[in-house]
């Protein structure tokens, strides 16, 4: 691999939007369009861990699916290893996608309950035309050891395993083809907190060993913080804040990022604290608000936020924010104390 190639991004997305039609009760009548992802551009560097953060319904899973060729974007392009995923030929597409794999959130539905461990893990090899049982078995045993399971488990069924162990099986299956790019869709949120650390450490170890690039999806910023090199914060299909994760955690600028940070619970005892919370739920993506998508829940929304969508502005090196309060309206000035006041509204 030449040095140049190493510096190329492994995956680039340019103005990607994904819309889904919603069918109404009557046939042939379209009720509306879900704007799952709107105008997302990003670059993922080779070997880095890229975080996508947001609440459920913000389009992060759809975005990940668009990255690995499972959902065709309505517009925009996805370039993986220099190839436009949705414009290349079928054969080429298959060859390219071999390097992309996914780890699913729910370890219970992602393993076929009728298959034993060997069949589950070896399936990608089997699909790729490997038919030598011995080779496959060797590789599966090797992977079982790598993810911390015993080779004796080879002929057991998923129902014999705990959630954490099933997630290990899922990880083993996803790396059997030696991928370069691995999407982890909330890999720990269905598991016990005590198992989180085990799985996250395992993922980090594997990344080091296999020099993988990760996309790490989560709704918990505390998990993302120490895993990711760069990240984006998504809300209703749009990027709110993006950049180097260290920079973002040091200097979060978007009110939504603040809200997410405030919602993280840790082990500090604060029984009588007035908790800082974000009010309400994420609105439906069928008819997202005009202007800034976050204004309905934003404690700092102004008239202009309701109608004018904010632009992405690079506030410092590797730190892009889409918020009028940071960028300023053309005619309105930024409130001075905004940063202290952001989302500090107390719940009574």
């Amino acid at each position: 691999m030449s040095k140049d190639r190493n510096q190329d991004p492994i995956l680039t997305m340019r103005n990607v939007s994904v819309n889904f039609p919603v069918k109404g009760g009557l046939p042939f009548l379209k009720k509306g369009i879900i704007q799952a992802v709107t105008d997302v551009s990003l670059k993922i560097k080779r070997g880095e861990t890229f975080g996508i953060v947001g609440e459920s319904g913000c389009g992060k899973t759809t975005l990940a699916n668009a990255m690995i060729g499972m959902v065709k974007p309505t517009s925009g392009e996805v370039i993986f290893n220099g190839k436009n995923l949705y414009k290349i030929k079928r054969d080429d597409f298959k060859k390219t996608r071999r390097h992309m794999q996914m780890i699913f959130q729910d370890p219970f539905s992602s393993l076929n309950p009728r298959f034993n461990v060997y069949q589950i893990i070896s399936e990608p090899m089997f699909i790729r035309g490997e038919d030598d049982e011995e080779t496959m078995k060797e590789r599966v045993v090797e992977l079982l050891k790598l993810v911390g399971l015993s080779p004796n488990d080879l002929y057991r069924y998923p129902s014999d395993f705990s959630g954490g162990q099933r997630q290990r099986l899922g990880i083993a299956r996803s790396i059997i083809l030696n991928p370069e790019f691995l999407v982890c869709d909330e890999p720990v949120s269905a598991l016990d907190v005590s198992v989180h650390a085990q799985i996250l450490n395992l993922l980090t170890d594997i990344q080091k060993q296999m020099k993988l690039s990760y996309v790490f999806i989560s709704h918990n910023l505390a998990v993302v913080k120490n895993v990711c090199d760069s990240m984006i914060v998504m809300y209703l299909g749009k990027i709110m804040e993006s950049g180097n994760s260290e920079t973002i955690f040091k200097n979060p600028l978007h009110p939504y990022t603040h809200a997410l940070l405030a919602a993280v619970l840790d082990t500090t005892i604060r029984k009588d604290r007035k908790q800082v919370i974000l009010k309400g739920d994420i609105p439906s993506p069928i008819n997202p608000p005009k202007g800034c998508r976050f204004w309905q829940r934003c404690p700092y929304a102004m008239e202009g936020c309701k109608t004018i969508p904010p632009e992405n502005i690079e506030v410092e090196k590797a730190h892009v924010v889409a918020c009028h309060h940071v960028n300023g309206f053309p005619e309105i000035e930024l409130p001075k104390d905004y940063k202290n006041k952001v989302n500090m509204e107390e719940d009574s």
């Binding site: 499972m70 071999r98 996914m102 539905s109 076929n112 399936e123 990608p124 699909i127």
Partner: peptide, 26 residues
């Protein structure tokens, strides 16, 4: 729509493979 079918698709499985290995036995 189960995730294990999705995983097989990701690994490059053909429709026949998914039908015979995952869907019919199910």
């Amino acid at each position: 729509n189960s995730n294990y079918v999705k995983a097989a698709e990701l690994a490059g499985a053909s429709r026949w493979h998914i039908m015979i290995r995952h869907i019919l036995p199910g």
